[in-house]
Structures are given as structure tokens and as C-alpha cells.
Design a protein around this nucleic acid. Structure first.
Lengths: 209, 209
DNA sequence: TGACAATGAATGAACGTTCATTCATTGTCC
DNA sequence: GGACAATGAATGAACGTTCATTCATTGTCA
């Protein structure tokens, strides 16, 4: 039962962040009270303040964790055998039910927060640039992209890919609750494959119109 | 000088909504107080309640107005001579400085709100479906799309296009304030053209892989 | 036209509530 | 007992909302 401080502290932090994610996804940052979080975590309000300076620190820590999760997804994506599979991993990361789900509503809220909180904006931008650099590199090295027909650079392809991924994520928050994560995932995959067939279908070179 | 009630009432509502848009874009729905809105509009708090039942009614009215604005953009887009120009109008509607700008931050917030407010979700979904139907029709009738190479249906192309549009809008909120609307607009246009060249570059038919 | 009545747009102080934050107190383990 | 984890009632600021009040404008009657 007893845990030395150095071990228990990260656990508590994690527990609080888990609860915060659920609350934030359900109600949004600014409609979630510290009591909501404490209730969800099954602890007292005061205890949150032992691990986080204030509410904004909780939000920042959530953003940080999101950054780490994206890095991990990126690592997994990089190890996929084909570029298409890499993209599928990246595109569906936010509709997995198990593991550490990157809940769509939370991410959309994060972007909304970024629009007015420069610290969050910097962090989100950083996440995005890291992920984009990873995918750009992935594309550069993939055989599929060697003879893509439209004279687009890897970075330009990556920008398109990320735009679609963000756009699908935004669509995800409109889905009625009746739709399961699996169904949403299937939907995302369809669009991914569609985009893929547009971008990387092997064809002869052509100057662009 | 004197205005009959039937004329002045919509003006006041509009004035309040204009102020609310500025506040919402700056601070978000739930960080904006009714005092913020009244101060921005240059009126008293109480007066807002003469025109709107409560704060949620202000948000709903904003969403309604957004719906009308999108309809207008769609009408304009439909009248463009080429499909590319139609898409350019749709893609850059949110970074115009003049007229009634559809501020990116507000729209991202609207999606975040949609994720937890079913009424807002229905409205946003409705806007999206209308716009998507319009673009799908536009694509069906455009000569550019007659010989698109990837065996994608107009509706599937429209979904891709809208995903990119939403994704770029999300990116827009991360832009540092130093970037002008014109620069952001140019950025959006680049991506639009890139997508266009992927989707509609005239080529011979091919069965999809 | 002038005097007075009626209107309702507009105000902003006040109210009840919610919320983030604090801290005195209690529980737990070595 | 000492050190630290955990509690949750208390605090005060901020918020959405209400409503008694003001006052310019409009309508009415002589």
C-alpha cells in the first residue's frame, strides 16, 4: 500500500490527468470545475493542488501529455511496413477505445484554447511540426512516393495529409454518440485510403497544369 | 432619427452579435462574460437580456448567423466560373478581413461546443451537410471532374475537400498574430491548388488499387 | 400648439450561485 | 512522534441574471 513519494507522485498526477481528460472531453476546459475533476478521480479537491499549481497547470500538463502521446503514435507509425499503414495509424489514433485514447473533443478544445493561449499555441505548434517532420521524412523515404505524379514535394504532401487528418478529427466531434469507436475508425480509414489513392497512385510523371 | 420598433430590434441584435463574435473569438464562449459583450457593444448588460433570453441563446444565434454566412459563401462559390475558383472562395472565406468574416477561432470553438451541446452539433452538422451537398453538385457538373482518374465519386471528393478545408481552418488558429489575413489567405490558396491538382488533374482513367 | 400621459429602451446595482483556491485538521505509515 | 498524504469546509472573487428606476420619445387631448 505504501508508496515512496518519488513513485506515488507521478501516479497521482497521472490519475488526476486521466480524470481531467474525461471531464475535459465531456465538458470542455472552462466548463469543467476542479470539483468535477476531483470527483472523477475519486479524491478531494485540495489534493489536486498538491500536484498542480492551479487549473491552468492541469491544462498545460494535459497538453504536454498529448504531445508525448502523439510522439508515441508517430514512433509506431514510423515502424509500419508501408506508408499507407503509417498513415492509417496516424489517422485513427484518436478513435481507439483502449490504451490512451486521444479524444477528439479534447484535441479540438486544445486548438480552441491555442487560439487564445500563446503557451498552448506554442505547444500545439511544436507537436504539429514534430509530427509533420516525421511524416515528411517517412514520405521522402517511401517507395510509393518516388513516382508520385503531381510534382508535389514531400513536405507539401505532408501538409495535405495533416490537413485531412485534422479535418476528419473535427468531423469526429459531430458524430452522434451512437457511433462506436470502431465505426468511426472505419470511416477514417476509408478517407485515408481515398486520400492515399489520390496522392500516391503510381502513374507517369506529368508537369502540373 | 426615430426608428420603429420592428427596424431597431434587429439592429440591436446584430450589434450584440457583432460584439459577441469579437469577444468569443478573443476569449472563447465560456470565458466571455455578459459584461464583456456589453462592454464591447457599448451598451449595458441588462439590455442584452431584452434581446436574448440568456447566454446560450446568444451562442445559438451566433451559430445561426454562421449558418447563414456559410450559405452566402456557398452561393457565391456556386456562381464562380470554374470549380477551382469555387473551391478557392470556400477555402478562404474565413480569412477575409472585410465584410462578415467567419473568424477561425470562433468556428473551432463552435466545433468544440458541438462536441458537448447537441443543439449546436445539429446545427453545425446541418451547415456541413448543406455545404457538402452544394459542393458535391458543383463537382458533378464541372467539366474538370468528368475525367478524374481515381474512380472517386463526387461525394467522396467533396468529403476530402471539406476535410482539408476544416483542417486548414484548424491550422489557422495556430498562426501568430503577426501574420495578416492576406498572408493566411495566400497560404490557404496554395494548399487549395495543391489539393486541386491532386484531385482533378486530367488524366486517363484507371481502376483503383 | 402646448401640456400632460404613456411607452418601453436602456441602465447598472444587487442577488444568488458557482468556482478556484486555501488551510486547519485528520489519517497513515515508519 | 514525526513526516507526509489527504480531506473538505471556508473564502472571496466573478459570473449570469434580475429588476426597480430613469428618461427620451411618442401619442393624446384641449
Amino acid at each position: 500500500m505504501s508508496q515512496p513519494q518519488t513513485d506515488s507522485a507521478p501516479d497521482r498526477r497521472c490519475q488526476i490527468l486521466d480524470a481531467a481528460l474525461i471531464c475535459f472531453a465531456k465538458r470542455g476546459f472552462h466548463q469543467t470545475s476542479m470539483h468535477d475533476i476531483s470527483a472523477e478521480a475519486g479524491i478531494s479537491v485540495g489534493l489536486i493542488y498538491r500536484y498542480f499549481e492551479n487549473k491552468e497547470a492541469v491544462i498545460s500538463a494535459m497538453a504536454d501529455r498529448h504531445k508525448k502521446e502523439i510522439s508515441e503514435v508517430l514512433q509506431r507509425a514510423k515502424q509500419a511496413p508501408t506508408l499507407l499503414e503509417s498513415l492509417e495509424i496516424l489517422f485513427t489514433a484518436h478513435c481507439c477505445e483502449e490504451e490512451t485514447p486521444v479524444v477528439s473533443a479534447f484535441v479540438v478544445d486544445l486548438y480552441a484554447e491555442a487560439s487564445r493561449n500563446p503557451r498552448v499555441a506554442d505547444l500545439v505548434r511544436d507537436v504539429l511540426e514534430t509530427a509533420m517532420a516525421g511524416v515528411t521524412e517517412l514520405i521522402s523515404r517511401s517507395p510509393e512516393a518516388q513516382n508520385n505524379t503531381r510534382g508535389l514535394l514531400p513536405i507539401e504532401l505532408a501538409e495535405l495529409i495533416f490537413a485531412v487528418a485534422r479535418g476528419m478529427l473535427m468531423l469526429d466531434v459531430l458524430r452522434p454518440q451512437e457511433m462506436t469507436a470502431t465505426e468511426r475508425r472505419e470511416r477514417q480509414l476509408q478517407v485515408t485510403r481515398r486520400l492515399w489513392s489520390c496522392l500516391f497512385k503510381p502513374e507517369a510523371e506529368l508537369a502540373y497544369a
